[in-house]
Amino acid sequence: MLALSQAKSAASAVDRRYFRFSWLLPAFAALVLSGCMPATTQVASTDPADPGAKVAAVGYRSTIAPYTSLRPATPAPWRNRNEAVTPQPKQDR
């Protein structure tokens, strides 16, 4: 029984040693093949690094343009303020 477990342990050690370095071959192949790629490829119709390339005009838009000051208002009678914001009654036809 002991010999069987030792044999299994030795066989698994060999498998583990193989799988520990199994990633080296694809990594080395990728490294070698990356040297065969061209230095640059044209991605768009114009080169972004070209200083003479035409670009769209830039417009200015204020980020706080619709701002209105919300300072505290002077107190007024609540009935007058309430009546100022209530909807007007509809005319009966």
Rank of each mutant, 00 (worst) to 15 (best):
D47V: 03
R16K: 12
A56Y: 05
K54C: 02
A84T: 03
F21W: 14
P26S: 12
T40H: 15
W23C: 07
L25D: 06
T41K: 04
W78L: 06
A7H: 03
T86F: 09
S22D: 12
A30F: 15
W78P: 01
T68S: 13
N82A: 13
K90Y: 01
K90V: 03
A13I: 03
F21R: 11
N82L: 13
S45G: 12
K54Q: 04
L2V: 05
R79E: 03
A65Y: 05
Q91N: 12
M1E: 07
Q6K: 09
D15E: 15
Q91F: 12
T86H: 09
K8V: 08
Y18W: 11
L70F: 08
A13K: 07
W78E: 04
P51V: 01
P66F: 03
A84Y: 04
A73I: 01
A11T: 05
Y18I: 14
L70A: 13
A53L: 02
S9V: 02
L24D: 04
L33R: 08
F21Y: 14
E83A: 15
P77A: 05
K90D: 07
Q88I: 04
S34Y: 12
P51L: 01
T86L: 14
Y60S: 09
R81Y: 01
N80P: 00
Y18G: 07
A73E: 09
V43S: 13
T68R: 13
R81C: 03
S22Q: 10
A39V: 14
L4M: 05
T41R: 05
A56T: 04
P89G: 02
G59I: 05
F19H: 09
S69V: 04
S45L: 11
L4Y: 04
P48R: 00
A7V: 01
W23V: 08
A7I: 01
A73S: 09
S9R: 07
S62A: 15
F21I: 11
